[in-house]
Simulated assay, not measured.
Amino acid sequence: MGAASAILLVLITILLPPLGVYAVAGCGADLFINICLTILGYFPGHIHAFYLEYVYYDRREMNKAGRFSASRAPGIYSERVQNGGTMGYGTIVQPTH
């Protein structure tokens, strides 16, 4: 299921980058930045969208393996993307090594 959703997200992002960003990051600063980049040129919007998706899926896989990234990815303002879609629970403390 995870691979199929990733492929579908890539296809959506190829057609309309802000829609792919919205699917990953939600409505926020990252979506606004991507809309502006897409208006300025189609390829900058793609680069930003694929960067967000790469960080999202990379962090998601790291979380599944039990490794948590202590550093923030540069240029990403969405906590959902920074955490790989797992917002965590109040009782779980993420290690900082």
Results as ranks from 00 to 15, higher is better:
96 T>M: 13
45 G>I: 00
17 P>A: 02
89 Y>E: 11
39 I>T: 06
59 R>Q: 12
27 C>V: 12
50 F>A: 07
94 Q>N: 12
87 M>K: 12
19 L>E: 01
9 L>E: 03
13 T>L: 04
15 L>Q: 05
68 F>A: 05
9 L>K: 08
61 E>I: 01
94 Q>M: 11
24 V>G: 05
93 V>E: 11
44 P>C: 01
1 M>K: 09
46 H>C: 14
92 I>R: 08
60 R>Q: 11
24 V>H: 05
39 I>M: 12
10 V>T: 15
6 A>C: 12
71 S>R: 11
86 T>D: 15
95 P>M: 01
90 G>H: 07
91 T>G: 09
69 S>M: 08
19 L>D: 02
75 G>E: 02
73 A>D: 10
4 A>C: 04
7 I>P: 00
96 T>E: 14
73 A>M: 08
40 L>H: 02
86 T>E: 14
72 R>A: 14
77 Y>S: 11
11 L>A: 13
88 G>C: 13
43 F>P: 11
31 L>P: 12
23 A>F: 07
29 A>R: 15
31 L>Q: 04
91 T>V: 12
20 G>K: 03
70 A>H: 10
30 D>L: 04
43 F>M: 04
21 V>C: 08
28 G>C: 08
83 N>G: 02
32 F>R: 12
73 A>F: 10
62 M>S: 10
61 E>R: 09
73 A>P: 13
36 C>G: 15
56 Y>R: 08
31 L>W: 06
15 L>I: 15
97 H>C: 00
24 V>P: 07
33 I>K: 14
39 I>V: 13
89 Y>R: 11
54 Y>G: 07
12 I>V: 15
90 G>N: 09
91 T>H: 15
13 T>K: 04
63 N>I: 07
20 G>L: 03
59 R>T: 01
63 N>C: 05
